[in-house]
Design a binder for these strands. Structure first.
Lengths: 206, 206, 206, 206
DNA sequence: GATGAATGAGGTTTCATTCAT
DNA sequence: CATGAATGAAACCTCATTCAT
């Protein structure tokens, strides 16, 4: 079965090729502004060939978003899991996400755009998937924060709210970085973020 | 000039009518998923009539977003200005935005979608406008926070970062509320948000 | 009936006004490139008002062409009739047409364009009218030339052919003048034309 | 490269097909009266297919006119070049044009209509091309006539005027033939034309 | 398996014409 | 009578998808 295996691998390589090129084009022009012909051109295949790998433009887009998004979330989770302490986990979480954004600007440009408009007649599969995965991610943050609360490292606040707060802050720092053409790495802002998240903006008298 | 005035008013009323109906359709189907015919149908006018009020679909969309967005930001600002203390301003700011979202679910669904894809050949006028206005809003938050820092009510942290953190938290609470079909009003979360923002999530020993 | 008469006159004045302005716009943009709104704007009336004077855009165009065309042909004919001799008539004919063109560049720009495309479903009324009037004009030329033949001033050639030849030469001189931005008056070419028409381009040995 | 060559040829054949069908439709209904759908229908292709061959309706029209017009002029020129004497050249010129018209009634119906109205915003490329080519043709006639003058076969008249006169006569004979539903071939009129052109209509006493 | 020419549904926009004011 | 806002039919063009080679 060597032969079949190689074929399989070849197939996968090409698919990944296309996905990568598609990402660039989608990032530059948006879902509706991109034509299948452009993706074909960019990836060096014929239009028809694209349809051997994906059922259609929408499917291609969905696959691209889904796979990268899952990679992102699992990368973040893996980074957090490597840490023991709650604060270590949070720090790892933030750093991992920031690093991912730095390495995947194009994807994030699309992702932030949240271009998951209702597609063909009620096909909001992607929309739902994105929300579900996002909520799963929030739940993961929640579990980490919960641990911190029980461990006495975090204040007794409903951890879901805290999770949303943390996610929002992370997201906001990302957006700020993407829209501001500064040259500081995003990662350098992680400490600042953590400081605000953990200590708050207010003054606490002793 | 009574006559002309009344006409002017009528014109404005109809324009607003169309804008309102368009908002609903755009919210449900996205910019590209919506046809001008649908907007016409929803607002009870003929297709051609839409073109008396707007130069095209894009112009209509831009007008809708722009006008409501500006209303939102100024509403928030006005609410903050009514308060004296920094914390009062922040609270007012958050509450005002939450109330706006509750009253304008549909607009916010679009706005959060950030559907400002590349339009016709380099027309990213709307995109730029949204970013500029957002950055202006951030700057406003920054100025409020700066005051708090000089007044000794807020910690000495670069206020721009704090502003992004605050904006991110607000946004995240909004998204959470919009995607979770709970029936609690968003406004009820304002205190929780403020608590996290001001005191942070961590425990601070005395 | 003073009142009715004045009204009648007023009506006619406005109609002529519109026709004159329409001529300019049509000359500049062609029939299909011109909108009724433009004609209305140019003539200082409202769109609806145009429809009090003409049944529609096509009718307006037809009226404009028809009336001016008839004026042109009758002007030419009148000028010829004032002369006695055949050559005098021919010379008068050519001069009159050249003068008309000089005074009505805009109209002639349209007329030469022969924009009488098939209009709405078989309405080639204008097309036919133009051809019929042209043929009538040719027949008139023919009659003048016939006289010249019987009088022994012109060679015995089928006068219809000669008429077409003459008309063609005149037309060609006009086109040449209109497309060439020289500043010599068209009228100055009349003698040259007559010379070629009467004596031919060849050398005739005695 | 056999394969690519055959494809190239196929492409050209289809393009020519479409051009030919378009010519008929344009001749019958004019540029604005013709829809792309009609051209598609007439040539047996789908609407979209037309756009593989031409950039748009205007481009299609321009291509059709341009190519045929150039063919016409070069055909005429080639015919003239085959002759030695000036009169031979003139006769060949006239005959060639007449034969072309007989074989291309439809094209000539369009061409004579001079339907080159102002197209999209200042695109008078076609208009200019037609004028330039016409003037080139006139210049060619002029050169032929010049030769005749130097050779002593033609009178000493400014050859440009004579060229316009000749072109006008030819054109007029064509128009006459096209509008008159007689069944005599146009070619049969060539001698008559030459006779008038060379000897003139007047009587020259010895 | 790869290709890319062909398809045609569907969208945006224009504009002649009408008719209530 | 004059007006000009409203109408809606109709046209051009794009582009995702298919399928014969």
């Amino acid at each position: 079965m060597e032969r079949a295996e190689r074929k399989e691998k070849e197939f996968h390589r090409r698919r990944t090729d296309i996905l990568g090129q598609a990402e660039k084009v989608f990032a530059a022009k948006g879902f509706y502004g991109t034509t299948v012909a452009e993706i074909a051109g960019a990836s060096g295949y014929a239009v028809g060939t694209i349809y051997h790998f994906f059922e259609g433009k929408e499917d291609l887009f969905t696959a691209m978003i889904t796979e990268k998004m899952e990679a992102m979330y699992s990368e973040i989770r893996r980074a957090a899991e490597r840490e023991k302490s709650t604060t270590g986990k949070i720090r790892a979480l933030v750093s991992a996400q920031f690093r991912f954004v730095e390495k995947n600007r194009e994807f994030c440009a699309i992702f932030i755009r949240r271009e998951r408009t209702v597609f063909s007649e009620g096909n909001d599969a992607l929309k739902k998937k994105i929300i579900v995965d996002y909520m799963d991610h929030i739940s993961y943050l929640e579990s980490v924060l919960s641990e911190g609360v029980s461990g006495g490292f975090l204040r007794q606040i409903p951890p879901r709210s805290t999770a949303f707060a943390l996610a929002g802050m992370i997201n906001s720092f990302i957006v700020s970085w993407m829209y501001t053409p500064g040259d500081e790495p995003l990662s350098s802002k992680a400490d600042s973020l953590l400081d605000i998240f953990l200590k708050g903006a207010g003054i606490h008298e002793l």
